[in-house]
């Protein structure tokens, strides 16, 4: 069902080499009024790497995620995607965003469009693909995330878990270089979380570069190469998932993990 995407992705990452970071944030700062939400953020994500960003609410992890495709502007510092500096405005920014997939906490499917149209809109209007080609690829993606039988429905007629899987398909349809997930399971009922996480784990296994803001320890252990722990707008600790969860070095991380793992 997905014979096109993974083989296409694998040689691309091999050819480009692994040394160059796909996403590079250096000395990024941002304020919301008096609140310093991002403090001197330095982060590199390599091609094919899966990075989980974790931290207490208000730590700036969502802002960090949204800054990468400039849904949030930054005050100073630099963000490079595939070696290119993030443009400020206009066509260049739109072009770059097309290469960065984004999955939101609240799904944000286009409410007036069918599931299929949600997935084909970007490829047709942004990539200039033909309707037939976009539809064929969209159906493959919907099959891959397991909602192909809902293609003609409106988003509101789907469960939260199904909507989020459609949102993942919509992002994948743009053939992005990197996928951003901003708390993708936080708005879901508990029984729907796994169906979305399974989709994400499968995606990670296929070599997609992913930056995931989440509290799901299971996902981090299963799929992440690295965990980035944030608190008060700073990156406090970075480590492998195993090391981070069993042996956190910073006091903030120990305190945070103690609270969420305590029960």
């Amino acid at each position: 069902m997905s014979h096109t995407t993974p083989p296409a992705a694998a040689p691309a990452s091999a050819a480009a080499g692994t040394a160059e970071a796909l996403v590079r944030m250096s000395h990024v700062n941002k304020h919301f009024g008096d609140l310093h939400v991002l403090r001197d953020i330095n982060l590199e994500v390599k091609r094919g790497e899966v990075v989980v960003v974790i931290g207490p609410s208000g730590s700036g992890k969502s802002t960090l995620c949204r800054a990468i495709n400039r849904l949030e502007s930054i005050d100073d510092g630099e963000i490079l995607i595939d070696g290119k500096r993030l443009p400020e405005e206009g066509k260049a920014l739109a072009k770059l965003r097309a290469d960065v997939g984004m999955v939101f906490q609240s799904f944000n499917l286009f409410a007036h469009k069918s599931v299929l149209q949600n997935v084909t809109l970007g490829p047709v209007k942004v990539r200039g693909k033909s309707g037939a080609e976009a539809k064929k690829e969209a159906m493959e993606l919907l099959t891959r995330v397991g909602v192909d039988n809902q293609a003609e429905k409106l988003p509101a007629q789907l469960s939260g878990g199904q909507q989020q899987r459609v949102a993942i398909a919509r992002a994948l349809a743009m053939e992005p270089k990197v996928m951003l997930f901003d708390e993708p399971t936080s708005a879901l009922d508990p029984e729907m979380i796994n169906e979305v996480l399974d989709t994400m784990v499968a995606l990670a296994k296929q070599g997609m570069t992913m930056i995931v803001v989440t509290h799901e320890m299971g996902f981090a252990r299963k799929a992440a190469d690295r965990v980035v722990f944030m608190a008060d707008g700073m990156i406090v600790e970075e480590n492998t998932p195993e090391e981070f969860f069993t042996n956190p070095r910073s006091e903030r991380a120990q305190d945070f993990l103690g609270k969420i793992l305590g029960h």
Partner: peptide, 21 residues
């Protein structure tokens, strides 16, 4: 909802197509 415009921008639509579509 603001999320609709964000989702439109996130798939690479610029202002005018996002407004129109």
């Amino acid at each position: 909802p603001a999320g609709q415009a964000e989702a439109a921008r996130a798939i690479g639509l610029s202002f005018l197509p996002a407004a129109r579509l």
